[in-house]
């Protein structure tokens, strides 16, 4: 149904659309979080890889920074409707984290954990093959605390709540476990191109 009096900005040419349905582009970098920005000190920062409840390997900030660094430039899409093009990140690919731990993915499901007790679920297939990283730098600088620094997950092909801020661990789970927002009405997978915003979409 067309909205009376709304002409819009016009559709992009077929095949040239970078913008998923229902999104708009912004040049700002809006901040969204469920609570206060946690205060994370680098000297007590740890990143833990777990299989179920069992820790497989833990890194300090210095150890983590010695892992191979990869740069990516990607469009990001927030479920609150903004998209930002060409965001530049550097960090450690999930592939390289597992390689350093000598771990092959034991299950197809991962739950990311954060310092503020936030969690979000991402299928391992969406983290592997260079698709996901733990980002340490944004636009050439350490990531601001408001934007998830010192380290955040980056899974840019899914809605951005999947790119957990203040990440401190990845956990392989025996089933696809809902995380924080997924328990509060948001979609289990979150593909912006299929507009999977809310459960039931």
């Amino acid at each position: 149904m067309a909205t009376r009096g709304f002409s819009g900005k016009g559709l992009p040419p077929a095949g040239q659309n970078r913008l998923p349905p229902g999104q708009y582009t912004t040049h700002d970098f809006p901040v969204l979080s469920a609570g206060p920005t946690p205060r994370v000190a680098l000297d007590t920062w740890r990143f833990t890889l777990r299989v179920g409840p069992k820790p497989v390997k833990q890194w300090t900030w210095e150890e983590f920074n010695r892992l191979p660094m990869t740069g990516v430039t990607r469009d990001i899409h927030c479920v609150t409707k903004w998209s930002k093009y060409d965001t530049a990140w550097e960090g450690v690919l999930v592939d390289d984290i597992l390689a350093d731990a000598g771990l092959e993915a034991p299950t197809p499901w991962v739950l990311a954990h954060s310092f503020d007790d936030y969690t979000t679920n991402v299928p391992f297939a969406d983290l592997a093959g260079g698709r996901g990283m733990v980002a340490l730098r944004y636009a050439g600088q350490p990531i601001d605390a408001d934007h998830g620094g010192p380290a955040r997950l980056l899974v840019p092909h899914l809605y951005f709540w999947k790119s957990a801020k203040w990440v401190n661990g990845l956990q392989f789970t025996q089933r696809d476990e809902a995380g924080f927002w997924e328990l509060r009405g948001y979609h289990m997978y979150g593909d912006p191109w299929r507009e999977q915003r809310y459960s039931g979409d």
Binding site: A2, T3, F6, S7, G8, G10, L11, G22, Y24, K81
Partner: peptide, 16 residues
């Protein structure tokens, strides 16, 4: 609430 505006050509804008 999410709101959706739709143009005659199918262009959409959504906000919460």
């Amino acid at each position: 609430i999410d709101v959706r505006l739709v143009a005659p050509d199918g262009y959409e804008a959504q906000r919460s």
